[in-house]
Amino acid sequence: MSVILSILIQLCMYSILALGLNMLVGYSGLVSSATAALFGIGGYLTALFALHYKLDFFVILIAGGVFAAVLGVLVSLPALRLKGDYFFITTMGFTWIITNIMTNWMQVTRGPNGLTGIPSPLVFGQVLNSRFLFFILILIITALCIFVANRVCTSPFGRALKGMREDDIALEALGKNITAFRVKTFVFYAIYCGMAGTIYAYNMRFVDPTAFTSDESIFVLSMVVLGGVGSIKGTLVGVLVLGIISEGVRYVGLPASIAFQARQIIYGLILVLFMIFRPQGLLGQYKIT
């Protein structure tokens, strides 16, 4: 039962990650490899807060998201002005730096060992020991994230973003500040990643650098690519499909390392095949340009 709950919580977590990335890619047309890094920043911050302070879950949730957003924007702001290729590589560089810090800053992050023994979350002053109740909490948060994402997409802001991705030169001519839009979508993306990190930390009860590698970024990207760039429904479908594949491969009975390779090959193939044959994904309307 606990295993199933853990998997469900992970699905929720990936939903939030994917929704964040989907907003960035689908609405500002920027591809990012920083997902895992921002995710990791949220996770590590949560671990540090939970281990050293008695803070409420929601406080940590927001703090994690905000911190990830601030850090992310600081690094990405100059790159947000540049074209897609440069931006992507900057996010790669950012991820490498963060991974390096996680692995080497022994005093704070305990390096490769990570931070263990994260206690149960404090919700409104009460210690939440029940895994089932934790799952319900996460489910509610996920639903809220979906709701907010949907509202943003259908708001005037969202419509402007749709215009921008179709023809950013035209929109620029109309006087809208594209960089400002890009920053806003990036902030949205970073906050979602940070919050997912909080969920991860409380779910696994420990964080370590191996959970936040660029493999994770690719995994989330393949969810968005498969499901459909720019489509919330599509993104959730992508999360489900890849979640099933990911768990499914585990249970087929292959030795652990082969299973890992098989999963990676599947994710890689998804990226390649969809880019060639269906760049808009299963349900999306927007092709990455």
């Binding site: 047309g29 591809v31 897609g84 290729d85 992507f88 990207l221 690519v225 990226l271 390649v272 880019m275 060639i276 760049p279 092709k287 990455i288 340009t289």
Partner: peptide
């Protein structure tokens, strides 16, 4: 576009 090549 270039980004599609990159992802592929």
């Amino acid at each position: 576009s270039g980004q599609v090549y990159m992802i592929a």
